[in-house]
């Protein structure tokens, strides 16, 4: 039998669709660049080849810039106002993490790069806790 409620239940979903943004987000992208920074800092310290060391610095600065970019994308595109309610320190976390990325760009301190990694891990926890893994990766992130 058809009830009043079933008459009001939509028969289907229609899409007020938009292809972009792609909706794929993952702090892993920032983490990979930050790991590059750490490894390059270590390689720089272990080398006494002047040219190699100069290249290390150039590459590290480039990678640190990418960390900032990937964090920014997560910050303004993935995270939504309702996430801020759950994590009131969300803005502060991103502000400090992007500042830390600047610090890694400027310095050759492995400790600073490790600190950056742990800050990205904090972002990763927030991303996972808000369903990012299920919602913003295709079939979830490969483990």
């Amino acid at each position: 039998m058809i009830s009043f409620r079933s008459i009001l239940r939509p028969s289907r979903i229609v899409d007020a669709h938009c292809d972009i943004p792609c909706g794929i987000y993952d702090p892993e992208q920032a983490r990979i660049e930050a790991e590059s920074c750490l490894r390059i800092i270590e390689k720089h310290a272990a080398s006494d080849d002047e040219h190699f060391r100069a290249r290390c610095i150039g590459i590290k600065e480039e990678r640190a810039e990418l960390v900032k970019h990937h964090l920014d994308v997560l910050w303004h595109d993935y995270f939504k106002p309702e996430h801020l309610e759950k994590y009131p320190d969300l803005h502060d976390t991103f502000w400090k993490a992007t500042k830390q990325a600047s610090k890694v760009k400027q310095s050759l301190d492995a400790g600073a790069a490790k600190e950056l990694l742990s800050m990205i891990d904090t972002v990763d926890e927030m991303w996972k806790a808000t369903g990012g893994l299920e919602k913003t990766r295709v079939n979830g992130r490969p483990s």
């Binding site: 039998m1 058809i2 028969s11 289907r12 229609v14 007020a16 669709h17 938009c18």
Partner: peptide, 26 residues
């Protein structure tokens, strides 16, 4: 009841209800 049900079923070919997903018509 059967007639009402058939009527509503038939009417669904001409009138229906749907739910909107997405922001493109905001």
């Amino acid at each position: 009841l059967v007639l009402i049900s058939l009527g509503l079923w038939g009417a669904r070919r001409w009138i229906d209800v749907v739910e909107v997903r997405g922001q493109s018509m905001a």
